[in-house]
Simulated assay, not measured.
Amino acid sequence: MAESAITPAPLPSADLAKVPVRTLLPWAAFFGLLMLIVLYFVGAEQGATSLIAGENVHEWLHDGRHLLGFPCH
């Protein structure tokens, strides 16, 4: 009863985990730019720096603004 009928599968080799930096760099740049755009809209899209007229964007992001510690009123 001490022996198991299931044999463990071999671990994948370390060669599978290597990803070239050239492959990751465009994706890292894309997501970095995307995060900067999100940060702008959450943190600064109101008042004098507003790109979009009106209060709609401010109201849609209002709770996220407070959650991240941005003052807005």
Rank of each mutant, 00 (worst) to 15 (best):
G69S: 11
L68N: 05
Q46W: 08
S50K: 14
G54Q: 07
K18Q: 15
F70Y: 08
E3P: 06
Y40D: 01
H66I: 15
R65C: 15
A53C: 04
S50Q: 15
H66R: 15
F31D: 03
E3G: 09
L51W: 15
A17V: 12
L25A: 15
R65E: 14
L34R: 02
M35Q: 10
D15S: 04
V57P: 01
P20H: 04
L68Q: 06
A29N: 06
L34I: 03
F31R: 04
L67S: 13
G69Y: 07
V38K: 06
N56D: 05
T49N: 04
P71I: 00
V38I: 02
A29W: 05
I37S: 07
A2P: 01
R65Q: 13
W60L: 01
G32D: 03
L11D: 10
S50V: 08
A5E: 09
A2I: 00
A29C: 14
P8N: 12
S4T: 07
P20E: 05
L67P: 10
G47V: 04
T7S: 13
A48C: 04
L51F: 14
G32V: 04
V19W: 12
N56I: 11
V57F: 01
S4E: 00
I52R: 07
A48V: 10
A17D: 13
P10C: 05
F31S: 09
H62L: 04
L16H: 14
L67C: 11
P12K: 14
A48H: 07
T7M: 10
L34A: 08
F30C: 14
G47I: 03
T7L: 11
S4L: 04
A44C: 03
V38Y: 06
A17K: 08
L36R: 09
L68K: 06
A53H: 13
F30V: 10
F31I: 08
I37F: 02
A48M: 06
K18I: 15
I37L: 08
V21G: 07
F70M: 06
G43T: 02
L67V: 14
T7Q: 14
H66F: 15
M35E: 15
L39P: 02
T23N: 00
V21Q: 06
C72T: 03
E3H: 12
F31V: 10
L67K: 11
L11W: 14
L24R: 03
D63Y: 13
T7A: 14
L39K: 03
L33Y: 08
W27H: 12
A5R: 06
E3M: 13
F41R: 05
A48Y: 09
I52K: 07
H73I: 07
L25W: 15
E59F: 00
L39Q: 05
P12N: 13
I37W: 09
P20S: 08
P26W: 01
L33R: 05
P26F: 01
V42Y: 10
V57Q: 02
A9N: 09
W60C: 06
W60A: 04
R22N: 04
Q46E: 07
D63V: 12
L67Y: 12
W60M: 11
A48N: 07
L68W: 06
I52C: 08
L61N: 01
N56R: 11
P71N: 02
H73Q: 12
P12S: 10
G54H: 11
L25F: 15
L68V: 13
A2W: 00
S50E: 15
L36C: 09
L24F: 02
G54C: 11
